[in-house]
Design a protein around this nucleic acid. Structure first.
Length: 271
DNA sequence: ACTAACCTGTAA
DNA sequence: TTACAGGTTAGT
């Protein structure tokens, strides 16, 4: 479910509420989803949250004494802030307990993962170490993007979805970025001109910034830690709009399967 | 490079 | 009953 914009929304909310708060405990009903094991998580007790950050689609909690909790929500993961005494949320799998509030990890499909490690190892064990460049950081320049594309035998959508190249873009924002640039998602990157690559680079920034300003895209599932939907679904041009007219030219949008994912584009505006 | 697998639920 | 869902990984 959550891509960069949704994770950024969650991180921003959690940062305000949880920074400085001390953990009192952790419980789970899905031990197979936590690393390394439940016993290790007992060490979070008493440690306060120093910082909450995002890297790609990961949420990272930096705790006192060089401890780190990394979370990946995968497809159906959600995080909710609740009072300790509140009822369980639907599909609740794990719970971080603070002094008054608790952070509930809900995950219908059980794909989400939590890692508990230290500063020296958390990137390695969680997979964060393999992540590519952050698309909203200043070092993601157009020149660097063109350099990444260089010589690759792949399509633009596959490249955008490859977390080891650029981190945080998922199915929604890959399709939206391609629409912005007027490029079909299944175009081979070697056939894309530098001018068009520049438009894709610009599109990535525009699409992601707008989505963050809109607090994420809620098609069916995404909710922020307070249970509210994002509203970026109103700004989407292609994702989820197959069979509807293109907002730019009126042509009916097509849906294909590409990179193993549903892929929507306008056959007239995108080539 | 593509597919199945990980899971559950919903819609066609 | 089958296909598909915003993600990733381990297999052919």
């Amino acid at each position: 479910m959550p891509e960069l914009a949704e994770v950024e929304t969650i991180v921003g909310d959690l940062r305000k509420v949880l920074t400085g708060q001390a953990l009192r405990g952790f419980s789970t009903e899905l031990a197979s989803a936590i690393w390394p094991n439940l016993r290790a998580f007992s060490k979070i007790k008493g440690k306060a949250v120093k910082e909450v950050k995002r890297r790609g689609k990961f949420l990272i909690f930096f705790l006192e004494q060089d401890s780190v909790v990394a979370i990946h929500l995968r497809m159906s993961g959600r995080l909710f802030l609740r009072k300790i005494s509140d009822d369980k949320v639907p599909f609740e799998r794990h719970c971080f307990i603070f002094s008054d509030t608790s952070l509930r990890f809900s995950d219908q499909r059980k794909f989400g993962r939590i890692w508990f490690s230290d500063l020296r190892n958390y990137e390695k064990v969680s997979g964060i170490a393999k992540l590519g460049i952050e698309p909203l950081q200043p070092d993601f320049t157009c020149e660097r993007f063109i350099g990444m594309v260089n010589d690759r035998n792949t399509t633009i959508k596959k490249l955008l979805l490859d977390q080891t190249v650029i981190s945080g873009i998922g199915n929604i924002y890959a399709d939206e970025s391609c629409f912005f640039a007027g490029i079909r998602p299944d175009r081979a990157v070697k056939n894309i001109s530098k001018k068009d690559l520049k438009k894709i680079h610009e599109g990535i920034g525009m699409v992601l910034k707008k989505a963050i300003n809109n607090r994420g895209t809620s098609m069916a599932d995404f909710l922020d830690p307070f249970g509210y939907k994002g509203h970026n679904q109103r700004s989407l041009n292609v994702y989820g709009r197959e069979g509807l007219p293109c907002r730019n030219c009126g042509e009916i949008l097509k849906k294909i399967r590409h990179a193993g994912r549903g892929t929507v584009y306008c056959g007239r505006c995108q080539s």
